[in-house]
């Protein structure tokens, strides 16, 4: 941790309690260890399982069963309407060796993840920081930025997106003002995916809300102490805000990436479920869905799903492994 942060924290801890009573709140990363805390006691374990009990019941009754069943299905041929037939690794072999559309869907999805995840994260963190500055009419702005997220998956969105990026859409009208000849952005295989990236960025509101909520937890005093110390805005952001925000940055990176890999609704709604034109918006889960529910190849769809689990599992594990180098939790001692 940097000097600025440490000074800031020291300053914070020196401030008198705010409303009477002993307080050691607000500080992070202090080294004090309380004798009364002993981890792993049997009593604590019982309490923990008590807290976890709804989740465990849900896991055993509703989640694990269907998950394992789908794992089993991935080794079968299953057309939904008649019982599954064991097929060994046939689905996995077909996926890797004999399905060009599978390869297309992997490429489309990777491109989408690589382009849209950083864009969403930067936009949401940026706007959250601006909105956290305490502007007037703040709640109106916040709501306004969040509004697109409310309608992002609705049936209406396909129609609205054509009004923006279609041949006759507003985007081309604006381009025409600058003398640029537009095109059908949705209908062109080279640009269709990017209209979905824009759609994803457009609905950055939920990621932004998480950042905003996290920013509210950064105690003001840290900033003030740091500015007394002579740190400018950028140094304060870099050394005070950013470290405290890392758990949520971590969360948002992980979740935005998982969501992008699993993206389904935008492409489904906008391409009428086809993934067109020319497979250019054939997201992985859209293709999986087509295989499972249109072609009635649920065995193959399950195999695709579990292949995705492996990829996402590796990504998640790597991200967690990296976390200890850059994520700072307030509960670390």
């Amino acid at each position: 941790m940097t000097d600025v942060t440490r000074t800031a924290q020291a300053a914070l801890l020196d401030t008198p309690p705010l409303a009477g009573g002993p307080s050691d709140g607000g500080g992070t990363g202090t080294k004090r260890r309380t004798a009364s805390r002993r981890s792993g006691s049997r009593r604590e374990a019982w309490v923990a399982f008590g807290f976890l009990s709804p989740w465990i019941v849900g896991l055993l009754l509703l989640t694990i069963g269907p998950m394992l069943y789908s794992l089993y299905l991935s080794f079968t041929r299953y057309d939904l309407l008649s019982p599954p037939v064991w097929a060994g690794f046939a689905n996995y072999e077909r996926m890797l060796a004999a399905d060009p559309r599978f390869i297309d869907s992997v490429q489309v999805t990777f491109l989408y993840v690589v382009v849209s995840v950083p864009a969403v994260l930067v936009a949401s963190l940026g706007v959250a920081l601006i909105l956290n500055q305490g502007m007037k009419a703040l709640s109106v702005y916040r709501a306004a930025f969040y509004l697109p997220s409310l309608i992002g998956g609705s049936v209406a969105i396909a129609l609205l997106w054509r009004q923006v990026f279609g041949q006759e859409g507003i985007f081309n009208q604006v381009l025409a003002v600058f003398g640029i000849q537009g095109q059908s952005w949705i209908g062109n295989p080279n640009s269709a995916l990017y209209t979905l990236v824009v759609l994803n960025v457009w609905t950055f509101g939920s990621t932004m809300i998480i950042f905003l909520a996290g920013l509210r937890q950064v105690p003001r005093e840290l900033h003030e102490a740091a500015s007394v110390d002579g740190a400018n805005v950028f140094r304060r952001f870099r050394h005070v805000t950013l470290p405290l925000l890392t758990p949520l940055i971590f969360f948002n990176i992980l979740m935005t990436t998982i969501n992008a890999f699993q993206a389904f609704t935008p492409a489904y709604v906008i391409s009428n479920g086809s993934g067109g034109p020319l497979n250019s918006t054939l997201f992985y889960t859209l293709y999986l869905y087509q295989r499972g529910f249109a072609n009635l190849e649920m065995g193959y769809a399950s195999a695709m799903a579990w292949a995705l689990v492996v990829v996402l599992g590796i990504f998640t594990a790597l991200l967690f492994a990296s976390a200890r180098y850059w994520v700072h939790y307030g509960d670390e001692r």
Binding site: L159, G166, Q167, Q183, S184, I186, G187
Partner: peptide, 11 residues
């Protein structure tokens, strides 16, 4: 009409 136009035609 062009292929791109057809691809964006509502269903």
């Amino acid at each position: 009409a062009t292929p791109a136009q057809m691809s964006e035609q509502p269903e």
